[in-house]
Computed example of a mutant assay.
Amino acid sequence: MTKSKSSDIAAELDTPSDLPQPAVDKISAALNVLLADAFALYLKTKNFHWHVSGRHFRDYHLMLDEQSDQVLATTDLLAERVRKIGGTTLRSIGHIAKLQTLQDNNDGYVPPQQMLVELMNDNKKVAAAMRAAHKIIDELEDVASASLLENFIDETERRTWFLFEASRQEGGNEG
């Protein structure tokens, strides 16, 4: 296997791009962190979907299932964007763990309202990270990656909104 101009990309994987290699490296790094966080958020949302309980079980269960599907749908698009510009992307759970910025929740029981608030805060962090990545990407003139993030920011803000409203149901008291 031969090496390309970038020391960590095999020539066979070095997708041609008009972006300079330093830009590809910076964009790929930013998108890979977002991708790692997307996988972390997906699994946490699924975890809470599987373990939610209480009087709003059905509503929360369905909402969290829908939201986990939305988050998972972003992963392939983010990874493929990295590859389209000639970068490399995540390869393992260990790689995700190394890059993710969101905290896992391994508690045996999490009250439903706490689940919603935690996911709301995680989605807010993801939106902020997407905005920061968008700024970097915009400066490097990668319009396609910026456009992709603009749509993901909107979807993330929608999830945040839904989680906020659901966490406030009936005064936020879970019985």
Score class of each variant (00 low, 15 high):
L99D: 04
A29N: 08
A127S: 07
L72R: 10
D142A: 09
P20G: 08
L116T: 00
A166E: 01
N47M: 09
L149G: 04
N151T: 09
F39M: 13
L31M: 14
T75V: 12
D37Y: 05
Q100N: 03
H49Q: 07
G108K: 05
S53P: 01
T88D: 13
P111S: 09
V71W: 00
L119C: 08
N105K: 10
L41E: 00
R158V: 09
R158E: 12
V33S: 03
Q169W: 07
L34G: 02
E66I: 06
A23R: 00
V52G: 10
D69C: 05
E174T: 15
A127D: 01
E141F: 06
M1N: 04
D8S: 14
A146R: 09
D122T: 07
F48V: 01
A127E: 02
R158I: 06
I9N: 03
M130W: 05
W50N: 03
L72I: 11
L149K: 03
L140Y: 03
L62E: 13
Q100K: 04
S68I: 00
S145A: 15
P112F: 02
P112C: 11
D18Q: 10
F152G: 01
L116G: 00
S145T: 11
P16K: 08
G171Y: 06
Q70I: 07
Q21W: 09
M63V: 12
I85N: 03
F152T: 02
E141L: 08
H49S: 03
R55Y: 07
H49N: 05
L19K: 02
L64K: 01
N173D: 15
V24Q: 07
K125A: 15
I136A: 11
V143E: 14
F162V: 10
T160H: 08
D59P: 05
Q113S: 08
N123E: 03
S145Q: 06
S4T: 08
A38R: 06
R58M: 12
D138F: 13
L119E: 05
E80C: 10
D69A: 12
